[in-house]
Design a protein around this nucleic acid. Structure first.
Lengths: 183, 183
DNA sequence: GAAAGTTACTTCGCCAGCGAACTATTCGCC
DNA sequence: GGCGAATAGTTCGCTGGCGAAGTAACTTTC
């Protein structure tokens, strides 16, 4: 859409592939306007690209999820319920924390999902304030079907990279996640 | 400059750093349960990590945005308005498409943002159905302040990588975004 | 040149999620 | 053993966004 930006000095190393992606064009467009802002071309490009790829995965998940007939919030709840270290059951509060939603929101989700039969609430006997949320058989099954579809899209994209480059990518990303976890 | 990811048989490639991140633990926990689902350890780990990093960036943006006193949807709207190829103005329909929201939602955002003074609606003279959305001076200014803060967090995380590894990462991600754009 | 179609935005009714206030239960402590 | 504090979940009023229907302006077609 745009002519390649004049790459004079101060421009970081270019990828072997000369074709520009959206991030390249974005950076080229704004390079001159961000003198006052602490701004690094490559960092901005990486950020934009990660955002795009994450959006791709999100969209793929949303499609997969609606294909099996689940609302997005239902999938997310089931997913979090399943992948936690006590798979299949949790307290509403803990689940809300994991899902980054408010307790009020959690109550709403559970009401709706209990009605649909994906999840079950059971009150604890020894502490009657406590409630345990459990995935039902139907809930687990539909979650797995969505997972399966979701995985296909991810695989299709990531298979663009050779196995070696995929390993490289995994390691680079891990360096970042480890750093995040350290904080 | 490649991470020495020695692949011993059966076991997927390990990063040079033996420390496990959340993605590693997640994959380890589920490896045996996904025999029936087409499932690759490394692909799942990459997906999870990208999701985490994107969430980190999102949270950082949300913090930056609220720090300057903007609602998230206001920032997103201003941002999209500014970074498009006609910076600072667009039609509501085009903007809605870029932002992935409905026309109805766009009307709502514009109503609210116009009231706050970040944005202005002007009706076209030659086609009176058309409206042009423009960022006001105040809107542009506050957006730039948020951008500045946002950039700091991104830089802080990505500076964990050496400049060389950052370039590697940018190139790997670009291979994926190019693939996405091709579709 | 008027009916039919298209385009551009708004209005309406609905839903998910939020923060704050509320209820119910258990814990801590003198 | 009784009372204040803490914990667990729910209710309430409100907001952003959605889909569908509505309005208004322009375009096409005969």
């Amino acid at each position: 859409m745009r002519p390649p930006a004049e790459t004079t000095e101060g421009v970081p190393a270019r990828s072997a592939d000369a074709t520009e992606d959206w991030a390249d064009r974005h950076v080229a467009r704004w390079r001159d306007h961000w003198i006052d802002i602490d701004f690094d071309d490559e960092i901005e490009a990486i950020t934009v690209r990660i955002g795009f790829i994450a959006k791709f995965f999100n969209d793929a998940r949303a499609t997969a999820v609606s294909e099996v007939g689940l609302a997005d919030f239902e999938y997310k709840t089931l997913h979090m319920l399943m992948i936690r270290d006590t798979p299949g059951h949790a307290s509403p509060t803990a689940l809300a924390k994991d899902l980054d939603i408010s307790p009020a929101g959690m109550t709403g989700r559970l009401d709706s999902m209990e009605k649909s039969g994906w999840v079950r609430r059971t009150t604890s006997a020894e502490d009657r304030r406590k409630i345990s949320v459990e995935a039902t058989k139907a809930g687990i099954e539909i979650w797995r079907r969505a997972m399966d579809l979701r995985g296909e899209a991810e695989t299709r994209l990531l298979e663009t990279l050779s196995s070696e480059r995929r390993t490289e990518l995994a390691a680079l990303l891990k360096q970042l996640t480890l750093r995040m976890e350290a904080e």
